[in-house]
Amino acid sequence: MLNVPGVFLRRPLSVYSVKKGEVSFLYRVIGKGTKNLSQLKKGEVLKVFGPLGNGYDLSSARKKCVVLLAGGTGLASLNCAAEKLSVPGIVLYGAKTKNDLASTDNLKKLGWDVRIYTDNGSKGKKGYVTEGIEAAVKKHGSNCVIYACGPHLMLKTAATIAIKAGVEGYASLEEMMACGMGNCQGCAVEISGEYKMVCSDGPVFDIRQIEW
């Protein structure tokens, strides 16, 4: 949770990368909060409360072919996960246009097979990133594991594909959040028939258990 000047609530952002003495975040300027965040100058102090919640369960990633499925700024947490894995896999990364894509240089440098999708074909393949999931699942079957973060519809489609193919998968979810630690009960999502909190129970949930 980042204390952004000029807005009341903190902004929940996932960590993009952790290096020695350095933590980075990836975000898109959408409203006042992210705009103010983008205008901070070098040397200004940003108060951060965290890290909070769980992370991706990477235990299967060491045994199976890893497929990272990212939409827009959802790339952030997956980049962070990729940095922890010694054996690279596939990254399926989608956005509306090439202008909505963040850099994947870091992932490429780490040896990941990055496949880009844009809605209008301005970069990579024209179409939805979930087409890539379908192909990967077909090729690797239950021998692959999916880690996903991105728009609701993308995650829902990925979940449907994963369930149908019996593939293991995890999704990092986003919800409006106030406290970041379970006290306000604001960021509820339905998991296996009951409400769980994205901030403290998640943000990562088994993709097969999320109620869309």
Partner: peptide, 23 residues
Amino acid sequence: KSGNPPPRLAEVEAGMLNTIGLQ
């Protein structure tokens, strides 16, 4: 009580709105 469906929060100028529903 399972509480109200999401979205349960919205930020407004100098404050916020909630509809937790006493979960």
